[in-house]
Amino acid sequence: KKIKIKIKVYNPETKEVLELEIEVSEEEAEELAKKLAEELEKKGYKIEEVEI
């Protein structure tokens, strides 16, 4: 079964909002969402919402 992940991120420095969407297997979904959120935060983005 495929799971659709939508991530909306906001960069306070540039006032930019990015929306990302990807489909992955159920097993990958939670781990991938967690890794993406961590990487984006390292780059200065503030995570507003992660929906699985």
Rank of each mutant, 00 (worst) to 15 (best):
K1Y: 15
K1G: 07
K1H: 10
K1V: 07
K1T: 06
K1W: 15
K2R: 12
K2M: 15
K2S: 06
K2W: 15
I3Q: 07
I3N: 10
I3W: 15
I3H: 10
I3S: 14
I3A: 09
K4N: 08
K4W: 15
K4S: 09
I5G: 00
I5Q: 00
I5F: 13
I5H: 01
I5A: 02
I5D: 00
K6L: 05
K6P: 00
K6F: 14
K6R: 15
K6I: 04
I7S: 00
I7G: 00
I7N: 00
I7P: 00
I7K: 00
I7C: 03
K8L: 02
K8C: 04
K8H: 03
K8Q: 03
V9W: 08
V9G: 14
V9S: 13
V9T: 05
V9N: 00
V9K: 00
Y10K: 03
Y10V: 07
Y10G: 03
Y10A: 03
Y10S: 05
Y10W: 09
N11F: 04
N11G: 02
N11K: 14
N11A: 08
N11T: 06
N11D: 03
P12I: 15
P12V: 13
P12K: 15
P12D: 06
P12T: 13
E13I: 13
E13K: 14
E13T: 11
E13D: 11
T14W: 06
T14H: 05
T14G: 06
K15H: 08
E16G: 07
E16D: 07
E16M: 12
E16A: 09
V17G: 10
V17S: 08
V17N: 07
V17Y: 11
V17R: 12
L18G: 04
L18P: 00
L18Q: 03
L18E: 04
E19M: 15
L20V: 08
L20A: 03
L20G: 02
L20D: 01
E21A: 11
E21N: 11
E21S: 15
I22S: 05
I22W: 11
I22P: 01
E23A: 06
E23H: 13
E23L: 10
V24S: 08
S25W: 10
S25Y: 14
S25D: 12
E26D: 05
E26Y: 10
E26I: 09
E26H: 12
E27V: 08
E27H: 14
E28D: 13
E28W: 07
E28S: 08
E28T: 05
E28V: 07
A29G: 05
A29E: 02
A29S: 09
A29F: 03
A29Y: 03
A29C: 09
E30G: 12
E30H: 14
E30P: 11
E30S: 12
E30R: 11
E31V: 10
E31M: 09
E31Y: 15
E31T: 14
E31R: 08
E31L: 12
E31K: 10
L32S: 05
L32R: 09
L32N: 04
A33E: 02
A33S: 07
A33F: 12
A33P: 03
A33R: 04
A33G: 06
K34Q: 09
K34A: 10
K34G: 04
K34R: 12
K34T: 04
K35L: 11
K35R: 12
K35S: 05
K35E: 06
K35G: 05
L36R: 01
L36M: 12
A37R: 09
A37W: 10
A37T: 13
A37L: 11
A37Q: 11
A37V: 13
A37N: 02
A37M: 11
E38C: 12
E38A: 12
E38R: 13
E38L: 12
E39V: 07
E39L: 07
E39W: 10
E39T: 04
E39S: 05
E39P: 00
L40C: 05
L40W: 14
L40F: 07
E41N: 04
E41S: 08
E41F: 07
E41M: 11
E41T: 06
K42C: 14
K42Q: 08
K42D: 03
K42F: 06
K42Y: 07
K42M: 06
K42L: 10
K42N: 06
K43W: 11
K43M: 13
K43S: 04
K43R: 12
K43T: 02
G44P: 00
G44I: 00
G44Q: 01
G44M: 02
G44L: 02
G44S: 01
G44F: 01
Y45R: 01
Y45D: 02
Y45G: 01
Y45P: 01
K46E: 05
K46S: 06
K46W: 08
K46P: 02
I47N: 00
I47R: 01
I47P: 02
E48V: 10
E48Q: 08
E48H: 08
E48S: 06
E48N: 09
E48W: 13
E48D: 03
E48L: 07
E48G: 03
E48C: 15
E49L: 14
E49D: 06
E49W: 13
E49G: 12
E49I: 14
E49A: 15
E49M: 11
E49P: 01
E49C: 15
E49F: 13
V50F: 05
V50N: 01
V50S: 01
V50M: 07
V50G: 01
E51K: 08
E51G: 05
E51C: 14
E51D: 09
E51W: 13
I52L: 07
I52K: 01
I52T: 02
I52G: 01
I52C: 09
I52S: 02
I52N: 01
I52W: 07
